[in-house]
């Protein structure tokens, strides 16, 4: 391939943390409100997000375009890598390999998740206030629920480990001790974010969201 891959690769690394990492934290907190505040708490969080000014442009430049670039260029990076954990079964080499595997899983998961939620809102099939019950409808299906758990764990590992690599690639953590400490911090972040998302997934399966789903389904039919 001709051209210079330095800038796109650097941009790929940056976008994964800013803005996508910030979006992940926001998403985790918003979802967690379903666990903490139930249906009402979740609706409130959704309302406050949607009442932000220039919400369409924020979504476009802070979420959609960065995800599109990070995802598509990331697939190319994964294609360029070999897997040699058989010969070199070191922890960091496994993390390198899992970074690519979870990246591909996350790409598929995010595409599916976007289609089922945000895109259905664009189509007018789901209203913002019905998102909680809509999620209940999805995660009540055991296969979809399992897919969500896999997707969430993969995405959070990819983000946490990617943050570790970002710190190296931008020359922030240089020595082995700094890199070891940052890898521990990132793994704690992985556990916390995964826990937040998993708790919200279980909350969406609860009766509170189920009863809402029943009433919502009677008024809106979802393709």
């Amino acid at each position: 391939m001709k051209g210079n891959s330095y800038l796109p690769r650097k941009l790929h690394s940056l976008l994964g943390v800013i803005p996508l990492g910030l979006f992940i934290v926001e998403h985790a907190l918003t979802n967690y409100s379903a666990y903490e505040g139930g249906k009402e708490g979740f609706s409130k969080s959704i309302d406050s997000l949607n009442s932000m000014p220039l919400i369409f442009w924020l979504e476009l430049f802070v979420i959609w375009l960065p995800i599109l670039f990070h995802g598509v260029y990331g697939l190319y990076i994964a294609y360029q890598s070999n897997m040699n954990t058989g010969r070199f079964s070191y922890g960091r080499n496994w993390a390198f390999t899992w970074q690519r595997i979870t990246g591909v899983i996350t790409f598929i998961f995010v595409a599916w998740h976007f289609y089922e939620t945000r895109f259905q809102i664009t189509l007018g099939n789901v209203a913002h206030e019905d998102l909680g019950s809509h999620m209940n409808g999805i995660v009540s299906n055991p296969i979809a629920f399992t897919a969500y758990i896999i997707g969430v764990v993969a995405a959070m590992f990819h983000f946490a480990n990617g943050l570790w690599a970002f710190l190296v690639s931008w020359g922030i953590t240089i020595g082995p001790r700094a890199q070891k400490v940052s890898s521990r911090v990132c793994m704690v972040l992985f556990v916390i974010l995964t826990a937040l998302f998993l708790l919200s997934l279980f909350a969406f399966r609860s009766d509170e969201f189920a009863s809402a789903a029943a009433s919502a389904l009677s008024s809106v039919s979802i393709g």
Partner: peptide
């Protein structure tokens, strides 16, 4: 930018050169 941080290099170097430290320093 081709470095993917697998860090196999520093584990394999027969001369014990701190390759990953060099790469991170050059990243900076």
């Amino acid at each position: 930018e081709g470095c993917g941080n697998s860090q196999n290099c520093v584990r394999s170097c027969p001369k014990g050169i701190p390759l990953t430290t060099s790469i991170a320093a050059m990243n900076r």
